[in-house]
Design a protein around this nucleic acid. Structure first.
Lengths: 349, 349
DNA sequence: CTGAATTACTTTACCGGTAAAGTTATTTAT
DNA sequence: ATAAATAACTTTACCGGTAAAGTAATTCAG
């Protein structure tokens, strides 16, 4: 394999012009030390040779690298995909570079990635943690290292890093309240790991709505697991095995709701007639699904943008920024489930 | 903002141990120059201080950066998302770092990104071009620069860079043949820009199947545009405005098919009864959509992996690798559309 | 027993930039 | 007229590594 053509360096240009490389550097950066004539010559030569400074060399000296590390548990995930997209877009506008690493829901890999990014001297870190992350030690290291850190979506509160999330708790309450108003009383929850922020907060919001209305769900109707379609399917299978079903299930994510839908379909349980369903999250494809699922639309792009904007403020040391948690308000997307309570079950009512 | 704690350098450790920094460097790399006793001391100190070499400094000297540039037109796109995911996973296994940049379907931005990545001294480039890319100049520059380049999905053949794609042409032929066998005779195509490889190849495959069977589609039923849901919707509106509909439409992408579906629904044209529909591509959600759309499933992960593997071979200079195009075979996913021809139209048959 | 090889290091140089501290020749101020 | 300031460069040093070329002490070979 032939070696890559060497690119033009300051020294190359200096040699051609018979001046020192520092002069060339200064000329390019518009330093006042350099006379107009020389500067024009340098600029002309640089254009001619297509000179581009070596960013690696630049980063070696500079205190700031204009690079941000992004760690996400996966990419092919409806919410994250959109958030990542927004982060890239916003970073590009601000002339920051993103280095994304994928932890693949593996806490150990996540840790390695964070360490790698730190050693790459990123100016700051944006992190959405894995389902498995329990030990916050690596993040405490980041904070101790004085590298600005912002969590988004799946966050770890209380570490002294800002957390940007959907209004998980409030959104869940909103959704469940809406169902209560429509007459539903017997709720189930297929929730996520309680060690993960979104799992915990959404369950909390669910409980809050119920307790305000003095409703207590049947313990058998509350199940916890992961956040994927597979997890939803599994939980629904268990629920069916147990025998009794609630009137309506609140699923922790959209994929979980789909898993429930798939499982219900296989077991010939019709949704929303026999069993109703709502969830936190939605999908671009929701309108095409039958039944389309009533749920909470998450402002993924907004969260991505906010997280980046907040991180940049921390990096720049803006005075009007404090480390804190931001919960972006969410809305209900009314679709074909959870229209109104269709049957009243005398045995329970 | 306080400054980040300075990280441990070779010099720091050398000072503490009273040896030269080069010895420390050699010890860490297991160079035979260093005695066992000293090496152990260095290793111990490195572990104690949590030394991590500065990758920026390393890259400045090394000829290879173990970094690969990835340029994609967008992230939130069913096929690309999965391909990107696979690329990250594979790169991680091979201990390569990915630097992804998003061109946002903007050819100018794409060019800048490629230049930036080149100046970052990536070892190779993986590119899926934008809808708008017409001028191959920047890619010719890459090739002239001797940086290995592999296109995937949306490719530019004939430049001397390898192209990894779905079997676009063959897949389209396969799908259309299948429809022909089921009795369909009057075809429409809502296709993509013919300047983009997937648009061109899929249309080509469509034509091939038809011409083999001596079928010529009505010119009014052939429309070209972009690859998004919006584009599908727009094209379908036009088709409706024109008056006559084909029996079945072959849509260039899954989102385009959805756009068609949405537009048909609004105009109370029932699919698949009044108008049938197939497309190139599919979705995780297809099973939940009604009607679920018969189409070609693209091996996104496989294409991502193949593209990366091929690029790595080029980078490593493997002898058994030649620059060439690879079309990964595709399959039909049979769903609720294109079951069999339901009506025969006497006016046309 | 002595020259050559080996061991275990150190010194110097370099990657491609940037910052700080010279160095001249030319102005400007007094 | 002469010291001080200014303009326009150059030299040196440094970022944090790696490669190549010393060097001194010890071991080996004949």
């Amino acid at each position: 394999m032939k070696q890559s053509k060497k690119s033009v360096t300051l020294q190359d240009m200096a040699d051609r012009l018979g001046i020192s490389k520092v002069s060339v550097s200064k000329a390019l950066r518009g330093h006042t030390d350099i006379g107009e004539t020389t500067r024009q010559k340098v600029l002309a030569l640089a254009a001619e040779l297509g000179y581009r400074p070596n960013p690696i060399a630049q980063k070696l000296t500079a205190k700031h690298t204009r690079t941000i590390g992004l760690v996400v548990p996966k990419i092919a995930h409806h919410f994250l995909t959109r958030a990542i997209d927004a982060i890239y877009r916003a970073a590009n506008e601000e002339n920051y570079e993103i280095i994304m690493m994928v932890s693949e829901e593996d806490a150990a890999l996540e840790k390695t990635h964070v360490q790698t990014l730190l050693s790459m001297r990123v100016d700051g870190l944006l992190i959405s943690v894995t389902e498995q992350t329990r030990d916050p030690e690596i993040f405490q290291q980041v904070i101790a290292h004085n590298t600005p850190l912002v969590f988004f979506d799946r966050v770890i509160p209380g570490l002294g890093a800002s957390c940007i999330t959907s209004a998980d708790e409030a959104g869940a309450t909103l959704l469940v309240n809406c169902a209560i108003e429509k007459g539903y009383r017997h709720f189930g929850h297929i929730g996520g790991y309680q060690s993960v922020s979104i799992g915990k907060q959404r369950y909390k919001g669910f409980n809050k709505a119920l307790s305000i209305h003095n409703i207590s769900p049947h313990p058998d109707h509350i199940l916890f697991g992961g956040f994927s379609r597979r997890d939803g399917y599994k939980a629904m299978s268990e629920l069916i095995k147990q025998g009794s079903l609630p009137e309506i299930i609140f699923a922790v994510t959209y994929p979980v709701a789909l898993g429930i839908l798939a499982c219900a379909r296989e077991n010939e349980i019709s949704i929303p007639e026999e069993l109703d369903l709502v969830c936190f999250g939605s999908s671009d494809y929701n309108d095409f699904i039958s039944p389309s699922i009533t749920g909470i639309t998450q402002p993924a792009a907004e969260i991505g943008e906010l997280a980046l904007a907040h991180l940049l403020k921390l990096i720049r040391g803006d005075e009007d920024v404090s480390i804190g948690d931001i919960a972006v308000p969410v809305q209900i997307n009314h679709a074909e489930t959870c229209i109104h309570k269709t049957s009243s079950r005398s045995d329970l009512d």
